[in-house]
């Protein structure tokens, strides 16, 4: 698993092909990129984890406002530090790939937007989400009044059972009717 001998065993490759939405070339490319990130220190470790700070340096994620959330959602680390193993990385790319289903994409989008991990999008989640989108500085933020109006508009549109929060099935329902989502929820390595 070094930078030079970055070859995946054939069985593993076909297994990954079956378990993800990625093609062979994409998996190999992902492996190459991941080995570069992992560097030399972990060469002898069978299943190295790359810390979040390094993943965030990827040009594909660098300008993404949700990059930390993405790492946290896809990380299987026990200590919840957002570090990714190669398989987590493949999971990430698979969810963001061209051929992933709407269901997968919306599921992960929901988890990314659910900042406090409580299973619903409430108004504080939505506020954080909007701030991520518009940029979190004083002159780019919406005023409190605008934010209130916006959140009530969002809830009015998406909160079907009117309980003040957006849950996964409501979210998936809304997303399924949002034409831009599938094309924009994509990361091209």
């Amino acid at each position: 698993m070094g930078t030079t001998a970055s070859q995946l065993p054939k069985e593993l490759l076909s297994e990954y092909q079956e378990l993800t939405f990625l093609t062979k070339q994409e998996i190999l490319l992902a492996h190459k990129r991941f080995s570069e990130l992992a560097g030399k220190e972990d060469r002898h470790h069978p299943n190295p984890r790359v810390p979040m700070s390094k993943i965030l340096m990827l040009p594909e994620l660098k300008s993404n406002p949700f990059r930390e959330r993405i790492c946290q959602v896809f990380s299987t680390s026990d200590v919840k530090d957002g570090s990714l193993s190669f398989e987590d990385f493949l999971d990430l790319l698979s969810a963001f790939s061209d051929s992933a289903t709407l269901e997968i994409k919306s599921h992960y989008a929901f988890r990314i937007f659910d900042f406090d991990d409580d299973g619903t999008l409430d108004s504080s989640d939505l506020e954080k989400l909007v701030n991520c989108l518009t940029g979190d500085t004083d002159d780019t933020r919406l005023t409190a009044e605008e934010m209130r109006q916006l959140i009530s508009n969002i809830l009015e549109e998406s909160d079907i059972d009117k309980d003040g929060t957006v849950n996964l099935s409501e979210f998936q329902h809304v997303i399924s009717r949002s034409p831009d989502f599938v094309s924009s929820f994509k990361i091209v390595l």
Partner: peptide, 16 residues
């Protein structure tokens, strides 16, 4: 859904 579309599908994850 004009607002939902903007918020939930607003970010273009392709942009690098």
């Amino acid at each position: 859904q004009s607002f939902c579309n903007k918020i939930f599908a607003g970010w273009d994850f392709c942009v690098t």
